[in-house]
Design a protein around this nucleic acid. Structure first.
Lengths: 191, 191
DNA sequence: TTTATTTCTTATCTTAAGTCAACGATTTAA
DNA sequence: TTAAATCGTTGACTTAAGATAAGAAATAAA
């Protein structure tokens, strides 16, 4: 898995031997089982995760009901910036939908890494900006589309997810009940 | 207005005379009139805006209907990262809800600024992370709440906005029609 | 394998949002 | 200062989502 980590980083910059070594040394790779919670609601965290294999679900509990607010798969970063940046307890948990392998990026070690190799500071900023761009798009998608349109959008843009994740979690992620998603699917198949 | 710009930046770092000068030189301050479009759907942009005074609305057209996907006021940054980071045409426009004064941050000049004063690279990354944190929160709010709850949330967290912006734009921002928001308000006032 | 749990669907009923049309009220512009 | 837009509300009707209950199918566990 170390090679996959390095391959991933190499996809947006060329690493020197030194950089590669410090990277592997600083950021341990961890295995999780399906169902494991990698970050629990209410805790303050210093860690972000880069998924090498598997799928992680972001969720929270509202009036006793579990609500899904995000899914993350290979190559995506799991980070609760509302907690990281403002040192607040997280309002969300993150749990593995499948067996998952992820790089654990502790923010102290990250800082030390940037100090040693400052050029990564810019790369990190750019990656964060890309994440923000995608998040902005997601939000406007949600605001401007109906539940049915959101489901269709998911169908065309992330069809794999529908195979990897139970439907009631997808429903929650689309902002509707499982019963509603079931009806939406029926409606679509009739056309 | 220059002083307000510098005051704002000084709220999260102490500026040297040199830094201050280059900053004012690199980033011009621009005035906009109510209704002005600062960034038009379909264009590729290099600019972000820091609002010193006024209010800017993010919106797009879906099936001929104008949909609002965000509001930005004093101290907030207006940036379409989906366009900036991926060099794509924007899917959204940004227009002034009121007469507005904003710092125009051109990304080339920004890059040059960081080259001259590298310590700002880290600051920028941290600010971007904070924006992302807030965006993540907004998205989960939208996913987990009903239109009525979203309106109440806005009432307690950004009540000024309701005074500054026409209600049908607020409605759109909450993902409902103006008629629906009118009914929601009626429902709430009856309790 | 058998049992238990999770997952998905269907039906009924209730509630809320969308649509269309109309009408004052307010603001803007000619 | 009129005329024209814009804005917010209301009513009637349609459509879709929420709640509740129940049952079938698939999956995991004993």
């Amino acid at each position: 898995m170390e090679r996959r980590f390095i391959e991933y980083i190499s996809s947006f910059t060329t690493l020197s031997k030194e950089e590669e070594e410090l990277m592997l040394e600083s950021y341990p790779i961890k295995q999780f089982r399906k169902g494991d919670c990698v970050l629990e609601e209410g805790t303050i965290t210093q860690d972000t995760f880069l998924i090498l294999e598997g799928c992680i679900r972001r969720h929270c509990t509202v009036d006793g009901v579990d609500k899904t607010t995000g899914f993350f798969t290979e190559g995506e970063a799991v980070a609760e910036f509302e907690s990281l940046s403002f040192n607040k307890p997280t309002t969300h948990s993150y749990s593995c939908v499948e067996d998952t392998v992820a790089v654990v990026v502790n923010s102290e070690k990250e800082k030390a890494f940037y100090k040693r190799f400052p050029r990564f500071e810019e790369l990190a900023r750019m990656e964060t900006e890309k994440m923000l761009g995608k998040n902005q798009e997601q939000l406007s998608n949600f605001i401007t589309k109906s539940p049915e349109e959101r489901y269709k959008h998911l169908l065309t843009n992330k069809p794999e997810l529908l195979q990897r994740v139970p439907q009631h979690q997808i429903a929650s992620y689309l902002g509707v009940t499982p019963e509603s998603l079931s009806r939406i699917r029926k409606r679509i198949s009739k056309k």
